[in-house]
Design a protein around this nucleic acid. Structure first.
Lengths: 215, 215
DNA sequence: GTCAATAGTCTTGTATACAAGATAAAGATT
DNA sequence: AATCTTTATCTTGTATACAAGACTATTGAC
């Protein structure tokens, strides 16, 4: 394997954070993690430091690392920025997508449809992620794609909460349909607007999110 | 001091990168850095790992860390994203700025004016940074402010190149003036548009940048 | 019974040691 | 003479050791 231990550990721990296995505010014990992964503290520390740099962990000097626990206000701000970036990706995708990009987008959309039909929220959650990635890829901007993917990952725990809200899955899918049409039609500004509102958590959706946060 | 060694080292090395003391593509020797800062390799490694996480360094397994040397295409993409975020910050600043924010913006603008009058590019470069930060702050979105600041730092070496181009400083200042007016007038969409084009490197400005990159 | 102070333990932060892969150099073979 | 192979050195990656600050629990005083 070409990867290093600390890189695998970083991905592993990051995954545990964004999937909620490590709850926000929870402290990460270095020796505990070290024994769990069967390594020494050194690579654990290196993984933790990287996650700190990304903004997933906060390191309080001499007091250890804790999972960032953003205030609702901050979560809202993160969704705002995400919405803007997604809108940008959508606009670029509309202008630049190739036939292959379009096919990939349609395929991802169909997979979402199957999940909706089966009523499987978890599957939809997964396919939804691939749908959005298809748009990032179609933007043909490597940097934007990376930024969007990183933000998407980071907001994963909260998006998961959102989908639990009654009927959100169907509403989300309906929005996807219009997005696909706009992108394929090459309408940059419509794609931007649709994706912005699709991603942003405004009005009721924000209160729903906050309500679900506390439990 | 409350800060840790590795945090200070991270800031120090990061600064050396964005100011160009470490050239793109250059390899960072751990023991060399360790002796330079009078510490062991451990905190150096931890600093390097963090800079890797934020995308300033690339770590090739068992072969050390090198300063990221982005292709022109990628630099262009970074400016595109930066432009979008700045536009967003401008739009929010226009809607949300308080009287204090407005005063700070005007003050920063005046400092820029003095630098232009004195013909001091380096001073302008510095005051320009403060001008943009005043806009971020006026957006009243802590997360957006952080993202913009981080991007601004990361693009610092290339923005410095831009200002060397003949007359760019005066042109930049002229754009600032219109931006100040739009923000203070509360015109969100005009502020967005002006900041977008102010930050983006399009047309001639892109070729100028590329031309300066090679030397 | 409650609060405060002190001792003890635990955890982090840094240094050092060791192992393994990578680079470079020297020798051998064609 | 050039190239391939082998060996030696150097650098990274991980483990361990040690020091200092933070937390905890116990004991003493009010």
């Amino acid at each position: 394997m070409a990867e290093n231990t600390f890189q695998k550990l970083r991905d592993e721990i990051e995954n545990d954070i964004v999937t909620g296995r490590f709850a926000p505010g929870e402290r990460l014990d270095e020796v505990q993690l070290a024994t769990r992964f069967g390594v020494s503290r050194t690579p654990i520390r290196e993984a933790i430091l990287q996650l700190n740099a990304i903004g997933l962990l906060e390191i309080r000097p001499r007091r250890g690392a804790v999972v960032i626990d953003p205030a609702p206000q901050r979560i809202f701000e993160m969704f705002e920025v995400m919405a803007e970036l997604e809108g940008m990706a959508g606009a670029m995708a509309a202008r630049r997508h190739t036939e292959t990009d379009g096919d990939a987008l349609k395929a991802a959309h169909q997979k979402c449809e199957q999940a909706v039909a089966a009523g499987e929220t978890d599957t939809y959650y997964y396919e939804n992620e691939l749908f959005h990635r298809a748009i990032y890829a179609a933007s043909h901007s490597g940097f934007l794609e990376e930024q969007c993917t990183a933000m998407h990952r980071r907001l994963r725990p909260y998006r998961r909460l959102q989908l639990r809200v009654h009927n959100r899955m169907k509403a989300s899918f309906g929005e996807h349909a219009r997005i696909v049409d706009a992108v394929l039609a090459g309408d940059a500004e419509l794609s931007r607007a649709l994706l912005r509102t699709h991603v942003a958590v405004q009005g009721d959706r924000f209160s729903d999110l906050i309500a679900n946060l506390s439990k």
